[in-house]
């Protein structure tokens, strides 16, 4: 049987529910020979700031059980270079582009959005308020519902395009921050970003990463991500959710959809297999075919509570 893969995230309809996650797919054009961006539901760019960022000192990454910890520090080429160098190619290829937006101050988020508003070919913005690896900005807005609502409102005022907020699993009140983002005007929520984590070198008696702590990703965090998607979906059933956290297989996607996500992002899996998003999409399609699921969207929120 043929499976209809398309899903809707509020007003944004995408051809399939698989997206490449921010920070794992460059600016959408780095892995063309393995994963052409136009074949995905959407590609989310590396977090973009108004000016290029140098990022954190090294070591920046460490492998852990079923995952890894990173502290990249949002190294990026800046919004201007993205708009000039990458966006025209993405547009010409027909990719659905979501720009991940980062700033150290709230005004900088608006600055990034305003620069992007001058360009065609951007479908959505994803506010990054959950990166655990920068000292200023980002996470402080993501942990305090009042600040998050204000930031989202500022982003909302700057664009009529789809606006997502990427939530932090480290926030003291997940549902509270989710609600704040929606109250501020977000069209959807992406969850979860990495979990604040640490690796220690027993012999050197030092943290492995130069910054001491970083963000944990990979299959190790999937059960937490599923629980959080489910909690937010239960609290805010009409809000489109993009699930992310340790997606490695088509079956993982099904689990996120059942928990209430309308789409998923594939992140760290790309580091193991640059064609992971396409492989996962193929597996999802096969799973649906084998289980008599005609439309992927049937799965969204279809978890049966016993």
């Amino acid at each position: 049987m043929s499976v209809r893969l398309g899903v809707e995230l509020g007003k944004l309809a995408v051809a399939n529910p698989i997206m490449a996650a921010s920070g794992t797919f460059g600016y959408g054009l780095d892995l063309l020979e393995f994963c052409p961006p136009e074949r995905l539901g959407a590609v989310v760019t590396k977090g973009l700031s108004p000016k290029p960022r140098r990022g954190s000192p090294t070591p920046r990454i460490v492998e852990t059980a079923a995952g890894m910890i990173n502290a990249i520090g949002l190294q990026n080429i800046g919004v201007e270079a993205f708009c000039i160098e990458a966006l025209p190619v993405l547009r010409q290829r027909g990719a659905v582009v979501a720009v991940n937006v980062f700033g150290e101050r709230m005004e900088e988020y608006v600055e990034v959005i305003e620069r992007c508003e001058r360009e065609e070919g951007i479908a959505a913005y994803e506010l990054n308020v959950s990166c655990p690896n920068v000292t200023a900005g980002g996470i402080e807005f993501g942990h305090d519902p009042a600040q998050l609502e204000r930031l989202t409102r500022m982003g909302r005022a700057a664009t009529r395009r789809v606006l997502w907020v990427k939530l932090s699993p480290n926030a003291p009140d997940l549902v509270g921050t989710a609600r704040a983002a929606v109250d501020g005007g977000a069209d959807g929520l992406t969850l979860i970003n990495t979990l604040r984590a640490m690796a220690i070198d027993a012999e050197k008696r030092r943290p492995v990463l130069a910054r001491g702590c970083g963000g944990l990703s990979g299959p190790a965090i999937k059960p937490i991500a599923l629980r959080m998607v489910w909690e937010v979906h239960r609290a805010l059933p009409s809000v489109p959710l993009v699930g992310i956290g340790g997606v490695e297989t088509g079956r993982d996607v099904v689990e996120f959809l059942l928990a209430g996500a309308s789409a998923v992002q594939v992140g760290t899996a790309i580091f193991r297999d640059p064609a992971a998003p396409l492989h996962i999409l193929g597996e999802l399609e096969r799973f649906c075919a084998e289980h008599g699921i005609a439309e992927v969207r049937e799965l969204v929120g279809a978890l049966e509570w016993h």
Binding site: G23, T24, L31, F34, R60, I61, N70, I72, F271
Partner: peptide, 13 residues
């Protein structure tokens, strides 16, 4: 230390 080998993780700078 390298995660992806293809320039997207920015871990090996």
């Amino acid at each position: 230390p390298m995660a992806c080998g293809v320039g997207v993780c920015l871990g090996c700078v």
